[in-house]
Design a protein around this nucleic acid. Structure first.
Length: 221
DNA sequence: GCGACAG
DNA sequence: ATCTTGTCGC
């Protein structure tokens, strides 16, 4: 389905060099097909982190009804290293995607898109491998500076690193810590923000990510 | 050298 | 990420 871009088992040093190279291939402009299905992605762990559990939930648009789910478990490959999260989580995610009957036109990932030191967070990296539009929706900040967004749902402020705007800090729900939204691949920040807001339910996280999070952590409802 | 640091 | 009950608030 997705052509191999590179090897996954790399020393941190090599992984970082690869990220800089791949970042040059990430598209920040919109290149979206009509959206009929949106996928949410998240990773969880079992047995003290020994097992990595990738979860993908596909929702229909409009309506956001769940149409398909996929879970893939495998031995954890490497430890968590800030900035190298994709090397730990993307392989398992790709395996989960391969069992899907539906190919979504948009994917939301729990983590950063290009709001990353070398502009290649998990969402951007996954987008390159799947060659699909992806959006990063993180619960906390990895890099960049920003002002506090307004108090109402939908209020947001730009996430800036140096002289570059790498994402947005969005108040997805009033009275709750904001989420960090950034384009992953084949989508602009403005469009990414529109889709995240459109997919908001009554919780902090947009539905795709929220449902994937539950499935990955194997929590019921 | 001293912090910061997605999940 | 994960270990975990009750509790405060809309």
């Amino acid at each position: 389905m997705s052509p191999p871009l590179h090897d996954w088992h790399l020393a941190p040093r090599q992984a970082m060099a690869l990220q800089k190279q791949l970042a040059g291939r990430v598209e920040r402009e919109d290149r979206l097909a009509p959206v009929r299905h949106i996928a949410g992605v998240d990773i969880g762990f079992e047995q003290d982190g020994e097992i990595t559990r990738a979860a993908v939930v596909v929702l229909a648009w409009p309506g956001l009804a769940v149409v398909e789910q996929s879970v893939h478990r495998e031995p954890t490959r490497m430890p968590y290293i800030p900035g190298l999260l994709s090397f730990r989580e993307v392989p398992a995610t790709l395996a989960a995607f391969e069992t899907l009957a539906v190919r979504p036109e948009l994917v939301m990932v729990d983590g950063q898109g290009i709001a990353h030191p070398r502009r290649l967070g998990v969402a951007a990296h996954l987008g390159l491998w799947l060659d699909l539009p992806t959006i990063g929706v993180a619960k906390s900040r990895l890099c960049g500076r920003h002002k506090e967004p307004g108090p109402e749902r939908g209020d947001w402020t730009p996430l800036v690193d140096g002289d570059e705007t790498i994402g947005a800090v969005l108040r997805s729900r009033s009275g709750v810590k904001p989420v960090y939204v950034s384009s992953g691949h084949r989508i602009s920040l403005a469009t990414a923000l529109e889709w995240v807001v459109r997919c908001l339910g009554r919780t902090k996280l947009p539905e795709p990510t929220r449902l994937a999070d539950r499935l990955a952590s194997r929590r019921g409802k």
